[in-house]
Simulated assay, not measured.
Amino acid sequence: MNRADASPWIETLVESHDEVLELWIGNESKLLPQRGLASAAEIRDQCSALLCVMIEALQKSNSFDADDAAWAPVRAHLAEVSTRQARRGFSAMETATFVFSIKAPLVAHARRLIGDMSSLSALIRSLSLLIDSLGLHTAETYGRSRDEIVRRQQLELLELSTPVIQLWPRVLALPLIGTLDSSRAQIAMENLLHKIVATGAIAVVIDITGVPAFDTLVAQHLLKTVAAARLLGAKCVISGMRPYTAQTIVDLGIDLSQVVTKSTLRDAFVVALNWARRAAMTQ
């Protein structure tokens, strides 16, 4: 439909903002509150905000094309809505449905004001294409936001799974539990090095008791961590060496001769504590 032909309807839409809003809220409120993710007041504010920016875009735009520059504020607003919905736990369907649900009240308003069936059909078709495009934009933005949230949560979990603990003044412990892949190893090394600098630690106990499988990759990660810590002035002792772990290291031909190892955390802590005491005596 030509934008100029829709001008009379758009002007009446401005005056009928509250009426259209009530129609929309009546439909939208049936969709969201069941899971307690949004209150009635939040739904009203969200609907009102989107309706306002859409009416403003309709007044400024020369078309019903969602990619038109005049619709940029609407796309930006929907991007914010998508991100917020993703963080609060709304599904992609619920988020997109919020946008699609505005179609019914706009069409109902148009039916009451436009008597010519040809003009009404053209307007409904243009509105449908516009809102469908905005709904797809919202779904795509939601997907990107959700992916970013998941990625950030994975990083947070990795950091939580590799804590650096201060056992004694200038003595740190890095307990490793579970499979030690490249991502976890990198985060563990970074956390440890930052903690060494922050605390001035000179001794570190790396406990591998909870690492189920010790292979060449794990050994390389440990050696890199030990070497990096040494560059910052901290010695490392590895605890948790069990018989099958020692046998695996020998079978793989891994050289840990330059690294102090102990079978138990207690023995490793004694070694680290002696290093710290000797360092304190020489200062």
Rank of each mutant, 00 (worst) to 15 (best):
E159L: 09
G135V: 02
R84G: 05
M189E: 03
S48G: 12
I202S: 14
P169F: 03
L160I: 08
R230C: 02
D147Y: 05
Q258L: 13
A219F: 06
K60G: 06
Q34C: 09
A228Q: 06
V74I: 09
L130V: 08
D255S: 06
R44K: 15
L232K: 00
R84E: 09
A234W: 03
R170I: 00
L32F: 15
E19Y: 07
M1V: 12
I102R: 09
S257F: 07
F214W: 11
L130C: 08
L256R: 05
T248E: 13
L176F: 00
I25E: 15
G135P: 04
A69C: 08
R144S: 11
L176P: 03
Y244G: 00
L21R: 04
R242E: 10
S29E: 14
A49M: 10
R184D: 04
L32T: 03
V81Q: 12
D147Q: 14
H109T: 03
A104Y: 11
A234P: 06
A203F: 00
A70Q: 15
L157P: 00
A185Q: 10
T209R: 04
L180P: 05
Q59W: 04
A246T: 08
G253F: 03
I165W: 01
Y142G: 01
P73N: 14
L192D: 01
G240S: 04
A246L: 07
E94R: 05
R278G: 14
Q220N: 11
Q85W: 11
L160K: 05
T83Q: 14
D215P: 07
C52D: 11
S101L: 15
I114A: 04
E159Y: 02
E42I: 04
V164Q: 01
Q283G: 06
A229L: 07
A268W: 04
F269C: 03
A70L: 08
L130A: 10
F100D: 05
R111W: 02
M93A: 13
A40C: 06
M54A: 14
Q85K: 12
S101M: 14
A122P: 00
R112W: 01
D207V: 02
V150G: 06
G143E: 14
Q247D: 08
A203G: 00
A229H: 07
M54F: 06
R44A: 15
L13Q: 06
S133L: 07
E80A: 12
A96N: 09
A268V: 05
I165C: 04
Y244M: 09
R278N: 14
A268I: 04
R146P: 03
Q85T: 08
A234Q: 02
A272E: 00
A76L: 09
H137S: 08
D18Q: 13
P105G: 13
I165T: 03
I206G: 00
V270S: 11
W71E: 02
A70R: 09
L158E: 12
Q186D: 12
L134G: 02
A41Q: 13
E94H: 07
D215G: 12
I238K: 00
